[in-house]
Computed example of a mutant assay.
Amino acid sequence: MPAKSQAQQQAAAVALSVKRGEARKDELRGASKEMYDSMTEDELEELASTPRKGKPEHKG
């Protein structure tokens, strides 16, 4: 499942870094916090690795 926007890709990247222990959990806010709680590391990796080229900044 590729990211639909740059914002979604960035939120997944932040959540993934916390899952891996590279960042602190108290740094999570909004979408990245929800993603951290509801997605596996593999799912976050897939979203975070989506190329940004051609993606809108925000979906909507």
Rank of each mutant, 00 (worst) to 15 (best):
S49Q: 11
A13N: 08
R20H: 06
A11D: 05
E22M: 13
M1V: 13
A31H: 07
K59D: 05
A11G: 04
T40A: 08
S38D: 09
K4T: 10
E22D: 12
Q10W: 09
A15Y: 05
S38G: 08
D42F: 14
E45R: 15
K55N: 02
E41C: 10
A15R: 06
P51Q: 04
P56D: 01
L16D: 02
L16M: 08
R29F: 15
E34Y: 09
R29P: 04
L28E: 00
G30D: 02
G54R: 00
G54C: 05
E46Y: 13
M1P: 04
L28S: 02
A7L: 12
E34N: 09
Q6I: 15
M35D: 02
Q8Y: 09
S17A: 14
A3N: 00
E46V: 15
A3D: 01
A7I: 09
M1Y: 06
V18H: 00
A7S: 13
L16S: 02
E57A: 06
V18I: 08
T50H: 01
H58N: 10
M39C: 12
K55W: 01
V18L: 01
E45W: 10
A23L: 15
D42A: 15
D42Q: 14
S49R: 14
G60P: 07
E41W: 07
A3F: 03
Y36D: 00
A7T: 04
S5F: 02
R29A: 12
P51L: 09
K19E: 08
A13C: 13
E45I: 13
R24V: 11
Q9N: 05
G21Y: 04
E41K: 04
E34M: 14
L44E: 00
S49T: 11
A11F: 05
D42C: 08
A23W: 09
P2A: 09
G30C: 03
Q6S: 08
A13V: 03
A3R: 05
Q8I: 15
S5H: 05
E34V: 14
V14Q: 11
Q9E: 01
Q8S: 07
G30H: 06
T50F: 04
D42Y: 12
L44I: 09
L47S: 00
K19A: 11
K53Y: 10
P56S: 01
A3I: 05
E34W: 12
E45V: 13
A31F: 10
E43Y: 07
A31Q: 11
V14G: 01
G60I: 08
S17N: 13
A11I: 06
Q9S: 04
D37I: 07
K59T: 06
L28Y: 02
K4N: 08
K55M: 15
P51G: 02
A11H: 02
E46I: 15
K53R: 10
Y36Q: 01
G30R: 01
K25R: 12
M1G: 10
Q9T: 06
D37R: 03
L44H: 02
Q10L: 14
E27R: 12
L47K: 01
K19V: 14
Q10S: 10
P2R: 12
G60V: 10
A31D: 03
A7W: 05
S38W: 06
R24S: 13
E43T: 09
A48E: 02
Q8C: 08
Y36I: 11
E45Q: 13
S38I: 07
R29N: 10
R20Y: 04
T40W: 08
V14Y: 03
V18N: 00
P51C: 03
R52M: 13
